[in-house]
Design a protein around this nucleic acid. Structure first.
Ligand code: MN
Ligand code: MN
Ligand code: MN
Ligand code: MN
Lengths: 219, 219
DNA sequence: CATTTTTTTTAGATTTACCTAAATTTAAAT
DNA sequence: ATTTAAATTTAGGTAAATCTAAAAAAAATG
């Protein structure tokens, strides 16, 4: 079946919200899509008749198996385009989301297949998020935020959950990017700030807010 | 101002039809867009209030200076994407039009600027059609169809006006592509077919229908 | 547990981009 | 110059995606 841009945006947003809560509410989806609850209810009825969601009035909803597969297809396209924009066109990673938000809806299967090959089958997007494969399989790496990492362990930055220009500016200042190796020297209990040692840099202190948005895995 | 996908498709189609007839008719545009004349009239009223066309009831219409500039922007995006699809992703040129038809509507200025640079500022698309520059300036090369070329003149294929898979199959068979050097040996008056000599190939005869769709310039 | 408060749904409108069928205008043909 | 035919526009309607305001249901509160 074929889906409208609007339907695809709803499906993808439900998918993302489900990563946090198993079942999604009307208000949270309206908020995510910057639309009104009434519009969400309308669209949900449509997605229900198209058999993409499990939905019970007043009870919230979630994607079913079909819906999930479609969502992963959209996420795949989005992340492949983000990779292209950063690694081929030279965008900074805080600028690509809005553009990929449009490109993800271009519907040619062949296009994505060839784009994937051209990019050399990347596994993660510029923000460190995994790219689902053709079958919708996604490899979720176990990762912890810097705020929750024990001291003296060597870790590698695997993703950032805040992708704003402000966050990018901050990370650049600390010489941190996806793949950067570092370790935690100390957690300050006063304000939750964290002293870290980035390889080939002097130790520095980052705020709890920053630490919580940097995800790492052990190497 | 910002335009919908539909508005952009109308604007671009008017632009293309204007290349042949200075003023465009409702029926021809409906036919080009595979829509109905009544829909064209509706959209034309809108484009008129948006000050993009000169339109007199029952008298046909044409883009004004603003409309023309916008059309050239869309054509630019379309052709840059076609170039990308063929030269970076490895598509054959008979498969790219439909995909570029979607990609052309992605609206980021920065995207097109960076894409252009990534592609090394190409001057023509895979079908030999010129790519307008950022200011909407387009270099129209004087070109004649093979059906109208005098014998024994050395010419270079500069574009093809039929971009179907069937045409591509035929051109591949004759070893003809954009940039191929050839000359006309003879015009047959019986059916308008043309004997040509492609460099490093044996002479061959092509039908008038094929000849009319191959455009060349003197080298 | 009865009553607020919050969340969600329904009802009814609006905008965009279409459509068909009928009316109107222009062009072509007798 | 009529008449006929073709092109174009108008009238009226539909489907998708949105919205606001009101009604209904669920959750929170004292
Ligand atoms: Mn999107
Ligand atoms: Mn991303
Ligand atoms: Mn298009
Ligand atoms: Mn082209």
């Amino acid at each position: 079946m074929n889906f409208s841009v609007s339907e695809e945006n709803y499906i993808k947003s439900i998918y993302h919200l489900q990563q946090q809560t198993a079942t999604v509410t009307t208000n949270s989806l309206a908020n995510e899509l910057r639309t009104k609850p009434a519009s969400v209810t309308d669209m949900l009825k449509k997605l229900q008749t198209k058999q993409l969601v499990e939905y019970e009035k007043y009870r919230g909803f979630k994607l079913n198996a079909t819906g999930n597969k479609i969502a992963l297809g959209i996420v795949r396209r989005h992340r492949l385009w983000e990779f292209f924009l950063v690694n081929k066109l030279g965008f900074e990673w805080d600028k690509v989301h809005a553009i990929a938000e449009e490109l993800e809806h271009v519907s040619s299967m062949e296009l994505i297949k060839k784009l994937d090959a051209f990019l050399n089958f990347p596994q993660t997007d510029p923000h460190g998020d995994p790219i689902p494969d053709t079958n919708g399989k996604i490899t979720v790496i176990k990762q912890l935020s810097l705020a929750d990492i024990a001291v003296k362990k060597n870790v590698v930055v695997s993703s950032v959950s805040n992708q704003s220009p402000e966050m990018l500016e901050m990370l650049k200042h600390y010489h941190i990017g996806i793949g950067t190796s570092l370790k935690v020297n100390k957690h300050f209990t006063f304000d939750g700030s964290v002293e870290i040692k980035v390889v080939q840099q002097n130790p520095c202190v980052i705020s709890e807010q920053v630490a919580k948005n940097i995800f790492v895995h052990h190497d």
